[in-house]
Simulated scan of single mutants.
Amino acid sequence: MTEIINFAHRGAAGHRPENTMVSFARALELGATGIETDVQMTKDGELVLIHDETLDRTGGVSLWIKDLTLAEVKSHDVGSWFHEDYRGETVPTLQQLLELVKDTDTIVNLELKTGVVMYPGIEAKVIEAVRRFGMEKRIIISSFNHYSLVECKKIAPEIRTGILYMEGLYEPWNYAKQIGADALHAYKYALIPELVAAAKQAGVVYHPFTVNESEHMKALLQAGVAGIITDYPDRLTELLSKQGV
């Protein structure tokens, strides 16, 4: 049986402040075999890992990532909003994460945040970083902006891409084939076993998000998904060990 990828969503986001090095490290300790994170770009062209386009929610300041240099982004604490124990955690760079996992078998899912801010050239920059680490075979690039996925495939056909979507795409495996994507990263309520089976037959796999309840994980595993994106990689680890996967 193919190994199910246990993607830790923004790291172990249920246990640590999301998209921080402490969250990524904890995810690996909890048995994650994949890490999912979000890529934005600073004013000086550096790739940083943060979900929101601004520091409002996790940094407590109304500043846009695109308007700040890397040094300015790094000057803000993004840990204490989660718990005082994590005060001083900063927004990591893509390089920091790749350095953390380079000597492991961890799969890294990089979500390009090219929806609100377009970040010209981010696709090429991300691929250049991945190639520098020789990690092409261990990366999946996903995005809600499917033009970004097409651009990535043009630059690096060997790197897998995943279509992020929320609901009701008709025969999404056909659409995936059309844009050269390898995986469907569907919102957890957007899929049923029949869709997973049809996609598999077409050579396209499902990695649903964000699945935090064990019962829901169990149902998706039975449906035949290839991976699950979760804030609680420990719950999926436990489930997979019980099933002997």
Rank of each mutant, 00 (worst) to 15 (best):
A27D: 02
M21Y: 03
D52C: 11
L164M: 14
T210A: 13
L240A: 06
A13I: 07
S241T: 12
V205G: 02
P17Y: 00
P233A: 03
K137I: 08
A12H: 03
T69S: 15
I35Q: 01
E99L: 14
D56P: 01
S143Y: 02
L236E: 00
H9C: 07
F82V: 00
D231P: 11
R131C: 11
F209H: 08
A183T: 09
Y187K: 09
W173A: 00
Y232W: 13
T58P: 01
A199F: 07
L184D: 05
K113A: 10
Q96A: 14
T42E: 02
Y206S: 10
A181I: 06
E89M: 08
G134K: 14
I35E: 04
A156E: 00
I179V: 14
G168S: 14
E53D: 15
A13G: 11
K137H: 15
V126S: 03
V150F: 07
I155N: 11
H76Q: 09
G203A: 12
V22D: 13
M21A: 08
K74E: 13
E194H: 13
L184S: 06
A226F: 12
I228W: 05
P208I: 03
H83N: 14
A226N: 11
K113T: 06
K66H: 12
A176N: 06
C152D: 08
A124Y: 08
I107G: 03
V108D: 04
V196E: 02
G162L: 01
V101C: 13
A202M: 11
A156H: 02
E29M: 03
A223P: 09
I141R: 00
A198F: 05
H83Y: 09
K153I: 10
L47W: 00
V225T: 05
A199G: 12
T69Y: 09
P92A: 06
R235Y: 09
F133G: 07
A13C: 13
H185E: 09
V48L: 10
L221R: 02
